[in-house]
Design a protein around this nucleic acid. Structure first.
Length: 323
DNA sequence: TCCCAGGGAGGAT
DNA sequence: ATCCTCCATGGG
């Protein structure tokens, strides 16, 4: 008696008809965006699960060795298989990997800009859109003053300790992200000592409480003007300009947002201002006015680019890597 | 041992 | 407005 046989694999694909420009799956998933924690990698395939047509569906996404192709391969695990399911999975993936963002247009538009220095290294890197706004908000809070690796593990521990455990019939286990109510009622000590969130535990619990009690409606923020949404977010404890921008960009998908962290501050100062002293706020305004609706992408490319080097950077190495 | 990590809050200047 | 310092914790 094994019930593994109940779960069947179904292969589907997203091709250049549905993907505008290249996608580099690995680079995208590993780029530390606060839409969600990084998907797990099992022998070259990234997998996740999502509530689709009323139940949690597990799927694997991967590419062939040539990683900049306009193609995503997908394996869906389910008992039953229908055209509707295929359609739902596809449209879900198109949404979260933002496959309708035309990266070819982006590269063309800025091919003579300073930003083009990052294109070779980062080609195919895409913004990710959160599937769960509350999760993205907490990810953004956790990311403050912590490495990507560290905040990812905080979020995984939050899911394990406060989320719902889903066990698939192939033996793999998945934890959902907890509801605002669950984290609002969580003890600070558990958040701190079980989830290793440190001083952020207070912020997390308070922010969850504000969401749970309706002080702020994350979905409603989509209808706000950018500045208004940002201002509202910054009323929450632990949310300053950088974290707010992360949520606006990776959570709500407002691509005009430009989160400025220590790395962006450094590279923008160096590449655009000849290392002149410049405030974080000035950097944000600079990126937003220069790149407009592509500011989020510009920020992502600069961030991913500079993180592939060691600090301090000498410009020579950047030019060499461009060859 | 010291320094840093996708910062923010509170306070002093 | 700009400049401190403190905040927990893990990793180099």
């Amino acid at each position: 008696m094994n019930n593994y046989s109940k779960l069947m694999k179904h292969k589907i694909e997203l091709t250049s008809e549905e993907i505008l420009g290249p996608i580099n799956l690995k680079r995208t998933i590993q780029s530390g965006q606060t839409s969600e924690s990084a998907w797990k990698n099992a022998n070259g395939k990234y997998w996740d699960a999502e509530l689709i047509t009323d139940e949690y569906i597990k799927y694997e996404v991967f590419q062939s060795s040539k990683s900049n192709e306009k193609r995503l391969k997908i394996i869906v695990y389910s008992k039953e298989f229908s055209d509707e399911l295929v359609k739902s999975i596809k449209s879900y993936l198109i949404q979260i990997f933002r496959l309708h963002d035309n990266l070819d247009l982006f590269y063309e538009k800025f091919k003579f800009d300073e930003l083009s220095k990052t294109f070779n290294t980062c080609k195919g890197l895409r913004l990710m859109k959160a599937s769960n706004l509350f999760e993205s908000l907490i990810c953004s809070i956790c990311s403050q003053h912590a490495s990507v690796k560290q905040w990812n593990s905080m979020v995984e521990l939050i899911k394990i300790n406060f989320g719902e455990k889903i066990k698939f019939e192939d033996g793999s286990v998945f934890y959902t992200f907890p509801t605002p109510e669950a984290l609002a009622k969580a003890s600070i000590d558990k958040l701190k000592y079980l989830c290793l969130t440190g001083y952020r535990a207070n912020y997390i619990q308070k922010a969850a409480e504000k969401v749970f009690k309706g002080f702020i409606d994350l979905n409603e923020l989509k209808k706000f003007k950018f500045e208004d949404a940002k201002e509202k977010l910054m009323e929450l404890p632990g949310i300053g300009p950088k974290v707010a921008n992360c949520f606006l960009l990776y959570g709500l998908g407002m691509t005009e947002a430009a989160p400025v962290d220590i790395w962006i501050h450094r590279i923008v100062s160096k590449l655009y201002f000849n290392d002149r002293k410049i405030s974080k706020n000035e950097v944000e305004e600079f990126l937003r006015s220069r790149y407009k609706e592509w500011a989020g992408y510009a920020q992502l490319y600069l961030y991913d680019f500079i993180r592939s080097f060691k600090w301090p950077i000498n410009l020579e190495s950047i030019y060499i890597k461009q060859q």
